[in-house]
């Protein structure tokens, strides 16, 4: 059983977490979003072998955060706040 580190609560067992999708799958906005671009956002996922950047929800505290982990070695870096991970203001 893996241990993930919530930026708010620290290291906790994986069954407290819920997968939230790929990090960086930004919502396309604007007046003319093509069907292809929208479908890419809605349906296409990375599923990488190796290094992966994901969004996870810590169900016990509600924090949604970015997690960098390796799907091959199962190493998991400490979680990061979404804003920090994406360099948002």
């Amino acid at each position: 059983m893996q241990i993930f580190s919530c930026p708010f609560c620290g290291p906790r067992p994986e069954y407290e977490f819920h997968f939230g999708g790929d990090l960086g799958n930004h919502r396309p906005e604007g007046p003319e979003v093509s069907a292809e671009v929208w479908a890419q956002y809605l349906h296409f996922r990375n599923n990488p072998k190796g290094a992966s950047e994901e969004i996870w929800l810590h169900m016990t505290c509600g924090e949604i955060f970015a997690l960098q982990r390796d799907t091959l070695t199962m190493e998991a870096a400490p979680g990061q706040a979404l804003t920090a991970a994406e360099g948002r203001p």
Binding site: G20, R27, L82
Partner: peptide, 14 residues
């Protein structure tokens, strides 16, 4: 509730 929190944290964090 989860949907509200998800969009609050992702789209309206500030």
């Amino acid at each position: 509730h989860a949907l509200l929190e998800e969009w609050r944290q992702d789209r309206f964090p500030r």
